[in-house]
Structure formats: structure tokens, C-alpha cells
Amino acid sequence: NKFNKEQQWATYEILNLPNLNEEQRKAFIDSLKDDPSQSANLLAEAKKLNDAQA
């Protein structure tokens, strides 16, 4: 299913963002699990935070 693929991709991407700390990473991944339909939005937020902390 589409959300499952998006969720897996977003999880992979978030795990590989270098500037997030473990707590932030875990929070994003927990949110992905809670609502896979928000995968794209959550990934965008994670990338923004990652860039802000660069």
C-alpha cells in the first residue's frame, strides 16, 4: 500500500538526517507510526529541522 512505502521511505530518510538528535529522530518516527498518511509532511518537517541545526 502507498502509505506503507511512503512511511518506509520517510523513516529511512529521517534515520539518515545527520543533524537530528536521537530524541528528535525518535519523535518523528513515532509520529510516522501513529499516522503514516502524514509521512511526506513529517519528512519535510524533519528536513527543515535538520537544516536549521546544521
Rank of each mutant, 00 (worst) to 15 (best):
20 L>K: 00
29 I>K: 02
14 I>Q: 01
44 A>K: 06
35 D>T: 09
1 N>H: 05
45 E>L: 09
36 P>R: 02
20 L>W: 00
32 L>V: 09
1 N>Y: 00
25 R>Q: 09
23 E>N: 13
24 Q>F: 02
49 L>A: 06
37 S>H: 05
23 E>D: 13
22 E>A: 09
53 Q>W: 07
45 E>D: 06
18 P>E: 07
7 Q>D: 11
16 N>I: 07
38 Q>V: 06
19 N>G: 05
23 E>S: 12
10 A>I: 06
43 L>N: 01
31 S>L: 11
24 Q>L: 04
6 E>P: 02
8 Q>N: 03
42 L>T: 13
31 S>Y: 07
29 I>T: 05
6 E>A: 07
19 N>I: 01
5 K>A: 10
21 N>A: 12
7 Q>W: 14
16 N>Y: 05
25 R>V: 06
19 N>K: 03
54 A>I: 05
28 F>A: 02
24 Q>M: 05
20 L>A: 00
35 D>S: 13
31 S>Q: 12
30 D>P: 00
13 E>I: 12
8 Q>F: 05
13 E>V: 08
48 K>P: 00
40 A>L: 14
29 I>G: 02
54 A>M: 06
29 I>F: 05
38 Q>D: 07
44 A>E: 08
9 W>D: 10
29 I>P: 00
2 K>T: 03
22 E>L: 13
11 T>V: 09
21 N>T: 13
9 W>I: 14
26 K>N: 11
54 A>V: 07
10 A>G: 02
1 N>D: 15
32 L>S: 02
4 N>E: 15
6 E>F: 13
36 P>G: 10
31 S>V: 10
48 K>N: 07
31 S>N: 08
27 A>K: 06
22 E>V: 10
16 N>W: 06
4 N>G: 15
7 Q>H: 04
40 A>S: 08
48 K>G: 04
38 Q>Y: 05
17 L>E: 00
54 A>K: 12
39 S>G: 03
25 R>Y: 04
54 A>P: 08
4 N>A: 12
12 Y>A: 13
53 Q>E: 05
6 E>R: 01
30 D>H: 07
18 P>L: 04
10 A>M: 03
11 T>R: 06
51 D>V: 09
44 A>G: 09
26 K>M: 08
37 S>Q: 09
21 N>F: 10
39 S>K: 02
50 N>H: 02
48 K>D: 07
13 E>K: 07
19 N>S: 09
23 E>R: 12
12 Y>I: 08
54 A>E: 12
42 L>S: 04
22 E>Y: 11
13 E>H: 10
20 L>S: 00
53 Q>F: 10
14 I>G: 01
20 L>D: 00
14 I>D: 02
41 N>F: 09
24 Q>K: 03
26 K>G: 08
31 S>M: 10
41 N>I: 08
3 F>E: 15
34 D>F: 14
16 N>T: 07
32 L>Q: 03
12 Y>R: 05
29 I>W: 04
12 Y>G: 13
47 K>P: 00
3 F>A: 15
9 W>A: 14
52 A>V: 12
53 Q>S: 09
12 Y>Q: 14
33 K>R: 11
42 L>G: 02
34 D>S: 12
7 Q>A: 15
29 I>N: 02
11 T>G: 04
4 N>P: 15
31 S>I: 06
10 A>H: 07
13 E>L: 14
44 A>L: 12
19 N>L: 06
51 D>I: 07
44 A>Y: 12
3 F>H: 15
24 Q>H: 03
11 T>E: 15
27 A>E: 08
48 K>S: 11
51 D>Q: 10
26 K>F: 09
35 D>L: 12
47 K>V: 13
4 N>F: 14
24 Q>N: 02
38 Q>S: 09
38 Q>W: 05
52 A>M: 10
43 L>Q: 04
13 E>M: 14
6 E>L: 12
19 N>H: 12
24 Q>T: 05
16 N>L: 09
40 A>F: 09
37 S>V: 05
29 I>A: 04
45 E>T: 08
11 T>H: 15
34 D>V: 10
50 N>A: 05
10 A>E: 02
21 N>Q: 14
37 S>W: 05
46 A>G: 02
42 L>K: 07
9 W>E: 15
2 K>E: 15
31 S>A: 12
47 K>Q: 06
7 Q>Y: 14
43 L>F: 08
28 F>S: 01
25 R>A: 06
47 K>A: 07
1 N>T: 04
2 K>N: 15
49 L>H: 03
39 S>E: 03
20 L>I: 14
35 D>K: 10
19 N>E: 04
34 D>M: 13
30 D>I: 08
32 L>M: 08
20 L>E: 00
27 A>W: 11
53 Q>Y: 07
31 S>G: 11
53 Q>H: 07
37 S>Y: 08
5 K>I: 03
54 A>T: 13
19 N>A: 09
37 S>F: 06
51 D>A: 12
8 Q>A: 12
8 Q>R: 07
25 R>P: 00
12 Y>F: 12
19 N>W: 12
2 K>V: 04
46 A>H: 00
16 N>S: 07
9 W>P: 01
49 L>Q: 07
22 E>S: 08
23 E>M: 12
7 Q>M: 14
26 K>D: 07
10 A>Y: 07
12 Y>H: 13
34 D>E: 13
39 S>W: 15
20 L>M: 02
12 Y>W: 13
24 Q>R: 02
49 L>M: 10
43 L>I: 04
51 D>F: 13
21 N>P: 03
29 I>L: 11
25 R>N: 01
20 L>Q: 00
7 Q>T: 08
